[in-house]
Design a protein around this nucleic acid. Structure first.
Lengths: 144, 144
DNA sequence: TTTGCTGCAAATAGTTTGCAGAGAC
DNA sequence: GTCTCTGCAAACTATTTGCAGCAAA
């Protein structure tokens, strides 16, 4: 896991460099994204900030996440059921293990994915750009 | 790839056995699903059937797909952008290679996924129930 | 004849957008 | 002072649902 503070600095720097204004709302949202404890959803971020920013709008969270995504600094984990999780701590594709009971998301260490991608490219003739690998199951806490 | 005719027979049999009525609409939808040429979407199925069934409703396609899914006979490939593809020819989790230009979906042969799943289970303490693996890229047709 | 299915239209829910005022620079 | 951002509310879109008539068994 990368250092959240460092990620925060990088993202804020990119925002400034690309000519965007640094508002308190953006600082707060980026701070949560850079940490990405538990892979927050837009709703999580919104709920978390409502205390400090009573007028905070969901639209602002959506727009800020979209902005950071356009800078390539957040990985979006969208799910077909409409839920979405974000990870600006490690903004590159990597596998996830998701608990179907409590929604916990874990980043496992894994080997062999690079080889698999190469194998796929050779077999299909595709130029592979990115990938998505999720395992769904029940975490040790929820087994009991 | 399984034999579409065989898959069709199996699904129809399951429908009957579970006490569901066999309507012309269901026959037509299941036929397309069992074939799963190109991994059709609900919209694809609907468009394909509008000629033969001018009164066909999107709701019926949704309901039938949901029904077949509840029998465990179709794999749903939902994407966060709202698109959804179905495969009742191989209704178990398997990797996909998706062209981001033309939307083509291919089922590659792959090795090592079983081992990876076991590795993940041991490392995280999860009981893994299912998984999803997609590679996104540009197919050989679209490279030109 | 009974029960479940279909088609239509309305409802739903997450996300996006238009606009006017507020705030960063 | 300029120009972008925010907050609100309305718009949007894929999917789901209620209901009345229809059709499979």
């Amino acid at each position: 896991m990368a250092d959240p503070q460092e990620r925060f600095d990088i993202i804020l720097k990119k925002l400034k460099e690309s000519g965007h204004k640094i508002t308190p709302q953006r600082i707060a949202i980026v701070k949560i994204l850079a940490d990405s404890q538990g892979h927050p959803s837009v709703e999580n971020i919104y709920e978390h900030l409502k205390n400090d920013f009573p007028t905070m709008s969901l639209a602002t969270v959506y727009r800020t996440v979209l902005l950071v995504k356009s800078l390539g600094e957040v990985l979006e984990l969208g799910f077909p059921d409409g839920s979405n999780r974000y990870d600006a701590n490690r903004p590159y594709p990597h596998p996830h293990v998701i608990c179907v009971k409590c929604g916990k998301v874990i980043d496992p260490d894994i080997s062999g994915l690079k080889d698999m991608q190469k194998e796929i490219a050779e077999e299909t003739g595709f130029e592979i750009l990115t990938h998505r690998l999720d395992f769904f199951g029940i975490c040790s806490d929820c087994k009991n």
